[in-house]
Amino acid sequence: MTSPAPEPRPGAGADAGAPASPAASSSDPFQPADVTWARVSPRLIPVRWILVAFWVGLPALVCAVLAVLLTVWLWIPAGVLAAALLWAVLLIPRQVRAIGYAERDDDLLIRKGILFRQLVVVPYGRMQFVDVSAGPLARRFGIATVQLHTAAASTDAEIPGLAPGEAERLRDRLTAHGEARLAGL
């Protein structure tokens, strides 16, 4: 796989000047071959709804009340907030369904996002520690968050909305994998 001297990579850089063919998108980086994605629990949807209702819906309500009491100008922020709330409420189910993770032999893949998609590949041997956390709201709905930490601060490897049993299983598996493939920094 590795050669002593860097070889010219055929077809990759040479035709960079030419217009890229649409065939390039045929192999999607967000859908690696032979990977089956595990979904997170749908109970994450109501949790996020409640959070959005609290942080966006409540201010919208306050603005609306103040608009009735004080000045009509406050209808503008109220409207904007209400629109954002509606958008978020419609978007959240799709967002939650878009979160996926996959355990491969040597690394864990985490995918999220619909419009702005991101994918993180975390090798088991690189994990420094695993966090399992659940806030009061998440506990009430019976979900937990598993977060992987590597030595890189920029590794954003968080899986929200796992059933507690699944979270524990994942934590134990990750820890076992990490010990088996332990490497230094």
Binding site: L115, R117, L119, V120, V121, S154, D156
Partner: peptide, 14 residues
């Protein structure tokens, strides 16, 4: 020394 790898793509990029 690779810790982890990441890919990002926005709608226009896609």
């Amino acid at each position: 020394r690779t810790q982890s790898l990441g890919v990002e793509q926005g709608p226009w990029q896609r």
